[in-house]
Design a binder for these strands. Structure first.
Lengths: 156, 156
DNA sequence: ATATGTTATTTCAAGCTTAAAGTTTCATAT
DNA sequence: ATATGAAACTTTAAGCTTGAAATAACATAT
């Protein structure tokens, strides 16, 4: 789903529109490839990988709302993905003493081991898929996107 | 769904991994905003907008497989979205004389008018959302992403 | 203590998405 | 003409995604 209207027209907003379309097509292309490999090699999905990646960074655990905010997806969405990870034994919900509305979500021992393996492959894939971008260019691109991001956060 | 594992680690693939995470976060952020506005202002969705945008570029119509290839999504996916657009009167399937397996999909008169209005708003939104990226920077970023894209297409 | 509002999470309905299987039509070789 | 395979599309099952409604627990003001 990456069309963008009238990319060949000219006008004031032309360059930004074109940038948006490229951005979207690039990320969709890579995402599709990653999804296929995760499925084929590890029988998992991109959303599950993303949740595990977030939890791997926080051994102490994360609240559902932390996950949702960090991953830029809705609350209800995270519930379903975590449910499936729990049923696979990769993630656990731990009730907290203080606030009984919340629960700390964290990787299980098995989840942590499993993720480490997948993450190593994932990093290799990214290196391969973005191989045509030089490391230097990657840094410059990242810089531009980062400044966009921080400006964005300032406004919203 | 935009985590990315261990973005703070260092190593050979570090810069490309970081780039990928930024790319994904940027496109998800913009996508979310566009989706909300399309829903609120025009009561439509991003996938429907994308299909209409593709058809708007081809007044003669497109095959389902053209749409699917152009939008980088699966065949079955397009079927459902076009079904809904047809039921809304914005798109029509026209049986062809030659090949009875295929049908040309095109915007109806109403679909074309409707899209023109939405597309104008959409272009304004992009200009606003990417407002912090200068036109010059936008061109450079686009160039880098384009070269990635064409290299990619060479391999797959 | 009780009411009122807020926060964290889940549930729900609708729609999007994919991969795989199924259908129909076309193309080609015998 | 008939079989065999390929192509275009749809259907299906499972999972992802959102926004909105529902639930439960907490916080605050009376």
């Amino acid at each position: 789903m990456v069309a963008g209207p009238l990319p060949t027209r000219s006008g004031p907003g032309k360059d930004r529109l074109r940038l948006w379309i490229r951005l979207l097509r690039a990320s969709r292309t890579i995402e599709t490839e990653l999804r296929e490999r995760l499925k084929k090699e590890f029988n998992t999905t991109l959303p599950r990988f993303d949740v595990m990646a977030a939890l791997y960074r926080s051994p102490e655990g994360m609240l559902m709302s932390d996950l949702s905010r960090f991953l830029l997806v809705s609350n209800g969405n995270v519930t379903g993905i975590v449910d499936r990870l729990v049923s696979e034994g990769l993630v656990a919900r731990a009730r907290r003493n203080g606030d009984r509305r919340t629960s700390m979500v964290r990787l299980t021992e098995e989840g942590s081991k499993t993720f480490a393996v997948i993450a190593a492959a994932h990093e290799g894939w990214i290196g391969e898929l973005l191989g045509t971008v030089s490391e230097d260019e990657a840094r410059r691109l990242t810089g531009m996107l980062t400044s966009f991001r921080s400006n964005w956060e300032g406004r919203e």
